[in-house]
């Protein structure tokens, strides 16, 4: 059984307009997203701005109300949970935010910030609590002198590590990391990514890693999903997505990443322009009339693609043939 399973998740935001300010339309920020995350794995959620990836993450942790669908945590639908069970879920699912400055209360000392989830979920005496906070700081490579400082006294990378320490405090099973390194410089980014991996190795935590950076996601994730206009267009293992992308959107996204490879830049540019041309020609085939991606079709053990109906039926046949 997977740790968490998101089934047909929908988050719609109403648009109000007209004279009576009635709901006249909806923004389908997330429209039928399904995925599973296994214990101890990192699942990447990749998309461009406005794709709905952040909303998905916020809905999973409960910061956004789902319009429809289910979120099953260890097989239980958390939407139906009683408050007490809900508390258990909140303790086990934590979040790391992109903007480390605004997600840490500027008026509170680091000790209080990190101790807050402990106080919410575990009743510890002050001595044990302090030891625990020091342990947590140590996990993210910060010394005891950090305890009595305020967030603004730290660099961006250090603050992000404090955010990680806070998220790890309650020994969660799943951490939702929303663009955790996109505001950081390259060398600091490397450090934060290393800490995330180290924590996973030591505590067996799973990550839902939300990012627009395909390079970082490749480094971090075992499996990933590509999101576009509120739907998943492709889900698969790292190898599936990076080496055998099938959806035109995924192909285009991958080609657009600038590589640190000077020797082949001419060829890469040609390839990118070729894919872009195909994308422009074929994009209507890959999306329905409302501009939404088609349902995912399984094409191999691990690989799912939102192929147009015609291609999908062909693919299914071959997939069955393989079986």
């Amino acid at each position: 059984m997977s740790l968490i399973e998101v089934k047909d998740l929908q988050v719609h935001f109403p648009i109000r307009s007209g004279f009576w300010n009635r709901i006249t339309d909806q923004v389908k920020a997330v429209d039928g997203v399904s995925f599973k995350i296994n214990a101890g794995e990192t699942f990447g959620l990749v998309g461009e701005s406005g794709s709905g990836k952040t909303t998905t993450g916020r809905a999973v942790v409960g910061l956004e109300k789902a319009t429809g669908g289910q979120i099953l945590y260890q097989g239980e639908n958390i939407a139906l949970n009683k408050p007490k069970e809900r508390l258990n879920y909140n303790q086990n699912v934590q979040m790391i935010f992109q903007d480390s400055l605004s997600s840490l209360n500027p008026r509170k000392r680091i000790e209080t910030i990190i101790a807050e989830p402990l106080r919410n979920f575990q009743k510890l005496d002050s001595e044990t609590e302090k030891i625990r906070v020091l342990q947590l700081l140590d996990i993210v490579g910060l010394g005891p002198d950090a305890l009595y400082k305020y967030p603004h006294q730290f660099s961006g990378g250090q603050r992000q590590r404090i955010g990680i320490a806070r998220a790890v405090a309650t020994n969660p099973k799943l951490i939702i990391a929303d663009e955790p390194v996109s505001a950081l410089d390259l060398s600091v980014q490397a450090q934060v990514l290393n800490f995330l991996k180290k924590i996973q190795r030591e505590f067996g935590v799973s990550y839902l890693f939300i990012s627009h950076d395909l390079g970082v996601v490749r480094h971090m994730c075992d499996r990933l999903a590509i999101m576009n206009h509120g739907r998943l267009v492709e889900v698969g293992s790292r190898d599936d997505i990076y080496n055998h992308p099938l959806h035109i959107y995924t192909q285009r996204l991958l080609e657009a990443i600038p590589q640190v490879d000077v020797r082949h830049r001419q060829e890469r540019q040609q390839e990118r322009l070729r894919i872009e041309k195909i994308y422009q020609e074929q994009k209507n085939d890959y999306y329905d009339q409302a501009g939404m991606a088609y349902p995912l079709v399984q094409v191999s053990q691990t690989h799912f693609v939102a192929l147009p109906p015609q291609a999908a039926s062909k693919r299914k046949l071959t997939a069955q043939g393989v079986d």
Binding site: L186, S187, A190, H219, M220
Partner: peptide, 17 residues
Amino acid sequence: LLRSVPQADSENDELYV
């Protein structure tokens, strides 16, 4: 700097800090 860029073949390694 070049060493701290996540690369295709660095998946299971620590990044250089």
